[in-house]
């Protein structure tokens, strides 16, 4: 297909964005991070499915300033799968016992509207040095 106008180029750009939107290069703005615990405990409790659901949901809602990152175990094995949401300038929030159907709620409520879902939240009782 030949591109015959700027609009057509922009359309191809839109369609191709999905292929590179995980990459930020060196210029990295302040973005929200979703950390999914992927230790052995997390994986056996279904963390991989959770992680992929997050990626799906964000893509569906076209939210692009969020990075979904697999991380290791943080020691809350009793509440796996766990997900930590880091919004720049705010205290990190840790959610536990996440199931795939709750992913949508977290994206809609916490990421989109900024409202923490209290009944999923685990109190972080440790400080990081």
């Amino acid at each position: 297909m030949k591109i015959k106008s700027l609009e057509e180029l922009k359309k191809i750009r839109e369609e191709s964005m999905g292929g590179v939107n995980l990459r930020h290069g060196e210029a990295r703005g302040e973005s929200i991070e979703i950390l999914v615990g992927m230790g052995t405990c997390g994986i056996s409790a279904g963390a991989r499915g959770i992680l992929n659901r997050f990626v799906d949901e964000l893509a569906k809602k076209k939210i692009d300033n969020v990075r979904v990152i697999p991380v290791g175990c943080i020691g809350y094995c009793h509440s796996e799968p766990t997900v930590q949401i880091n919004i720049p300038g705010q205290e990190p929030v840790l959610y536990g016992n996440i199931t795939e159907d709750k992913v949508k709620d977290i994206v809609e409520s916490h990421i989109h509207k900024g409202v923490v879902i209290q009944n999923l939240k685990i109190d972080i009782r440790h400080t990081r040095g």
């Binding site: 999905g18 995980l22 992929n52 990626v55 799906d56 979904v68 697999p70």
Partner: peptide, 8 residues
């Protein structure tokens, strides 16, 4: 599932 990681 959607791609979630790129290894460059």
């Amino acid at each position: 599932a959607k791609e979630r990681t790129n290894i460059l």
